[in-house]
């Protein structure tokens, strides 16, 4: 062996010395770990075997094998199509579960279970007892209200066509806008009557009954002409009422009826019949250039 090769070996040993140190160190760590873990592992094994023995005593493994049989049964009796259908309904199931686990629903369920603890000493109640309770006890009335509302919503959902999406009930139509402080319209339905025929007179368009079609084209001169045709000489008292009617129509979009005009303009019912004979509601609306009022007062 030449000096040259000896030097080479020494150089190599020097280069791996560090690595050897590291390997020795790791070996030491591992031994420490095993010596520490051994009692723990023994404890764990003891405990686990005890647990398994306990399970066996209680029939867990028999149950597992029975479950295996059940799985066989499922496989025998159901096809992959069934599983796909189940996947389809899984969304609905999950939705139901999600709805059921909403906080408010859980609170109601919690309340219900609480309530049931208080019903141990309840006396039987007959029909008249039920009526007495229903008429006297606020709690009973509230409960009946809740129950009826639940039944109502249930009925609404069940009566919806099966194919149709089950949407919440539509919001009620808002009432016709009425100026604050003014009395509400009686039976007022602000629907313009169907225009059967347009009649031109004095440069304006009227329907066949004599009501101005476009209230915006009205002016005092036209009012005087219409009134004269009806045999009425317009005075300041007339115009006070007419101005109120036009302002009210502009505010609410509906022609006010006689009672509303009489109260709102301050003229009074009697004056309405004197100012606009013989049909105060119609005549007044006709002269004021607004549609015929709807309603029965």
């Amino acid at each position: 062996m030449s000096t040259n090769s000896n030097e080479e070996i020494l150089a190599r040993l020097a280069s791996i010395e560090q690595k050897l140190d590291y390997v020795v160190e790791r070996q030491r760590w591992t031994e420490e770990l095993v010596s520490e873990m051994t009692p723990i592992a023994r404890l764990v094994m003891t405990s686990a075997s005890n647990r398994l023995a306990d399970w066996e005593k209680r029939g867990a493994f028999e149950m597992l094998s029975a479950l295996g049989d059940a799985a066989d049964g499922v496989l025998d009796n159901y096809t992959p199509e069934d599983a796909r259908e189940l996947a389809g309904s899984l969304v609905a199931i999950l939705g139901t579960v999600r709805n059921l686990t909403q906080l408010d629903i859980l609170e109601v369920a919690n309340d219900a279970t609480d309530v049931l603890h208080h019903t141990d000493e309840v006396q039987p109640v007959g029909m008249f007892g039920a009526m007495r309770k229903a008429s006297k006890d606020d709690d009973v009335q509230r409960g009946m209200g809740v129950a009826l509302e639940v039944l109502r919503q249930l009925g609404r959902v069940r009566s919806a066509p099966s194919g149709a999406p089950r949407l919440p009930p539509p919001a009620r139509l808002p009432k016709a806008a009425v100026a604050p402080g003014a009395p509400a319209q009686a039976c007022a339905v602000p629907v313009p009557p169907p225009v059967d025929e347009v009649v031109h007179w004095e440069g304006h368009d009227f329907d066949s009954k004599g009501f101005l079609l476009d209230p915006n084209t009205w002016n005092r001169d036209l009012a005087t002409k219409i009134a004269a045709g009806l045999g009425i000489q317009l005075t300041d008292a007339h115009f006070a009422v007419i101005d109120w009617v036009r302002a009210d129509y502009a505010a609410t979009g509906a022609s006010p009826n006689v009672r509303r005009v009489a109260l709102g303009s301050g003229a009074g019912t009697e004056a309405m019949y004197q100012l606009f004979p013989p049909t105060p509601g119609k005549t007044c609306a006709m002269i004021a250039g607004v549609p015929k009022p709807v309603g029965c007062v």
Binding site: E197, S208, K209, M286
Partner: peptide
């Protein structure tokens, strides 16, 4: 068709 106020 005649309007109620458009008389002769």
């Amino acid at each position: 068709m005649s309007l109620p106020f458009a008389r002769d």
